[in-house]
Structures are given as structure tokens and as C-alpha cells.
Design a protein around this nucleic acid. Structure first.
Lengths: 221, 221
DNA sequence: CATTAATCTTTCCGATGGAAAGATTGGCTG
DNA sequence: CAGCCAATCTTTCCATCGGAAAGATTAATG
């Protein structure tokens, strides 16, 4: 009678919801977001799909919890990257690179963030709070650049929206590889560097004779 | 036995694949991308799901064909917008606005472009060709700005990547509404205008005393 | 020890994607 | 025109999925 104890784990084990979220993230990263089904996730942790349903109710909620975790990890990555750099501008640049690197390293997670089932989530969900948390990290780095660095606000413009849009868009396009290919890490770094430079100086291009322009006689130091 | 002729349409009707693609786009726009199932699309055109399977093989192919159509319509919209404007810069700006407007007007179509089943598509598919077609339209507008307008290329930078990333990212974030809400058309227009301005002048901001800066002492008429 | 609440499994249902086999139709060859 | 063939479409079937329901097991509480 006690022999089957080793075969099947006991009913009450550790933090099952967290385990399911972790399993979801692993599954998404390994096999793509399309394979993130209630049953597949449950199988991965040796549970019946009904057990997962018990904890999360709907698949939408499980995916939402996993996406929330992704946003939190992204926020942590941005936060960490924001500590590297001499000045505020360099630190913000580091955050942009980190965002793009995160997206390329974990394309499945980025796809999870835009899963069809998550697009109709209510606005007061923790998912949205986590998303705004990640955005706020970027926002703080941007604010530091405004106060400390050479950036100035545009009248009526929202620099955070520009930065977030640019970085997010680039990360998206790069991670899917549908628009341009990013084969080696060197090419990526160069592309990111060019992107950040373009973002700082704008499409109009560098203005000759103005401080901080690349290629001109530097007056800093 | 001729009595049931009116009840069920004949076997051979018009261009069924095109009809299915159209139905897919309608369904996606009305009920979201999650409802774009083989059976639901077939039901909408009074066909069995096996008929749709006969024409497209896998659901992935049907969605891919629909996404290709979206890219083509987007390219046409950009092309049309590129004809409005006094100079190359204004025309390019118009294209950016058109892109964002397209994404906000058809959020379901944008979601379709990033459907989980379409992320693993082969690179030589017509879907990728259509995507690059749309990008090339933007690229041409950008090139015109470089040759005709006040834009200058950055050394090592790819302005098309910047522009596409920025516009795509903003459109994405705006269409999902997760980052900022776009309620009325006026707010959208102001946000787009600010975005395009920011994209042109960069995060560093306008440089006082240089031609074309907004808000400074204008040197033009 | 008895009761209660939480956890997990088994079982069931409707819906889905896809495969298989048969029915229907248009076109093509004799 | 008759007969055959290929394309089109339907019906049927299966494995899987999400979710609901009911029962079994375990932990906590009295």
C-alpha cells in the first residue's frame, strides 16, 4: 500500500502556482508560445490539467501570471542595466541595450506578452501593473537623463513614449527576425548602438558644431 | 431531388481561397484573433472546415495568407499616404501617421501579424515578402527624405530601422492600449505628431540656434 | 478523533485541427 | 455526346484542448 508513494507525489507539495508559472516560462522558451497549453504545462510538473485549472481557473490566468513574471524579470534586468554607465545618458543607453538583449535572448517570452488570450485582459490586472513597472524603470532612467544629462524635453512631446516605442519596436522586429536578421552578437551590438545613436540625435541627423556630436571635435573631458 | 438545390450552394463557386481570407480578416477584426479558427472561418462562408483545409492545408497557412493580405493593404495605405505632403519630410511624416492610424484602426490585424502560429513560418514565404514590401515603401519615403529633405545619414546608423522600429513600436503600444490610452482622435493626432517630432530631433532635443527647431526664434518667414 | 477546507485526480463534455473516405461537379478526352 | 478524371466539398472519425463536475486524498483545525 505504501509502495505507490514513490510513484506519485503527494497531494500537497510546495508552491504549485509558482511552479506552474516557471514551467510555463520554460515551455514557452523551449517550444514556443503556441505549445503553452494547460495540459502541457501540467504534464511538465507531473500534474493533471485539472490541478492547474484549480489554481488558475482559466488558461488566460496562467498565461497572465507567466507574462507578469516576464515583465518583472524584464524590469529587474532594466534596473540592473541602469546601474552601468558613467553618466545618466550612458546608463539609459545601457538600459536600452538590455531591453533589446532581453527580447532577443527570450523571444518566446516576448511573444507571450502579446498572446491573443492576454490582449483582452482587464486594465486593473497585476499584468498591467507589472508592465507599467517595467516602463517606469525606463522612465526613471530617462528622467535622470533629462535632469542630469544633455537631453531636453520637447514641447508637447513625450520622450518616454518615443524611447519605449523605439526600443520595443526594435526588440520586437529583431527577435522575430522578420525584418532584419541578427546573426552574431557583434552585428547586434552594432545595430543597437546605431539605433540608440539615431534615437538620441534624431532622423534629421547630427548638427555640426554642436556639443556631443559624434565625429566632430569633442569638447568634453 | 432538385428541391435541396436552394438549401445548399453548389460545390464549385468563385474564388474560395480569397473568400476565406476575407472572412478571416473580418472575423479577426470583429471578434479578435483568438476566434480565427478553421471552423469559425468556414462557418462564416457556409463551408465545412474540411473545405477550408482542402484549400489551405493547415490553419497556419490560412492565417499566413490573411496576414499577407494585411501587409499588402498596409503597404498600399503607406503608399497612398506617401503622396500627401509638400516636401519629402512631410510625406514621410504622413506615412508614419498612416502606419499608426492603420494599426489603431485595425488592432486585430496587427495582432494577426504576430500570431503564434505565424512566428515559425519559413523565411521564403510570401508572408515575409509582403512584410518586406511594406517596409520598402517606408524605406523609399525615407530615402527621399535623405536626398531631398533635411535628413542626414548617421555613420553606421540605419535610419530605416529606427523609423520602422519607432513607428511600429508606437503603433503596437497604442493599439493595445496597455501603455497609454488613446481615447479620442485628437489625442492620437497630438501624440503621433509629438512622436514624429521626437523622432526627427532625437531625445537630445532641439538645438537652439539651428534651423528648423520648433519653439525657438524662427529664422524663416 | 472528527470536521472542515484545500488540493488533486478522474471523468465527462463541447470545440478544435487534421486525416480519411466518399459524394458531387466541372472539364477534358475519346 | 458519352465516359472518365481531377478538383471541390461533405461527412465521419480521431487525438487534443479548455473547462466543469464529482470524488478521493491530505492538511489543518476544533
Amino acid at each position: 500500500m505504501a509502495g505507490r508513494g514513490a510513484k506519485r507525489p503527494p497531494y500537497h507539495r510546495g508552491n504549485v502556482p509558482a511552479t506552474l508559472v516557471t514551467a510555463t516560462l520554460e515551455l514557452v522558451e523551449q517550444s514556443g508560445v503556441a505549445s503553452a497549453t494547460m495540459r502541457a504545462v501540467a504534464r511538465r510538473v507531473e500534474l493533471s490539467h485539472a490541478a492547474a485549472t484549480h489554481h488558475f481557473g482559466k488558461l488566460e490566468n496562467l498565461l497572465g501570471a507567466a507574462a507578469t513574471e516576464v515583465y518583472q524579470r524584464l524590469a529587474a534586468t532594466l534596473e540592473e542595466a541602469g546601474t552601468h554607465g558613467e553618466d545618466a545618458l550612458a546608463r539609459f543607453r545601457s538600459m536600452g541595450c538590455a531591453y533589446i538583449g532581453f527580447a532577443i535572448a527570450h523571444p518566446g517570452w516576448m511573444q507571450l506578452l502579446e498572446h491573443p488570450l492576454l490582449l483582452s485582459q482587464a486594465e486593473s490586472e497585476p499584468l498591467v501593473r507589472a508592465a507599467r513597472l517595467a516602463r517606469d524603470v525606463l522612465q526613471r532612467g530617462l528622467d535622470a537623463g533629462f535632469e542630469d544629462g544633455p537631453m531636453t524635453r520637447h514641447p508637447g512631446g513625450d520622450a518616454a513614449v518615443l524611447a519605449w516605442s523605439t526600443v520595443h519596436g526594435f526588440a520586437k522586429l529583431a527577435s522575430t527576425g522578420k525584418l532584419f536578421a541578427v546573426d552574431d552578437a557583434d552585428a547586434l551590438e552594432r545595430a543597437v548602438d546605431a539605433l540608440m545613436t539615431s534615437m538620441f540625435f534624431g532622423l534629421r541627423g547630427p548638427v555640426p558644431g554642436v556639443d556631443g556630436e559624434p565625429g566632430t571635435a569633442g569638447s568634453s573631458g
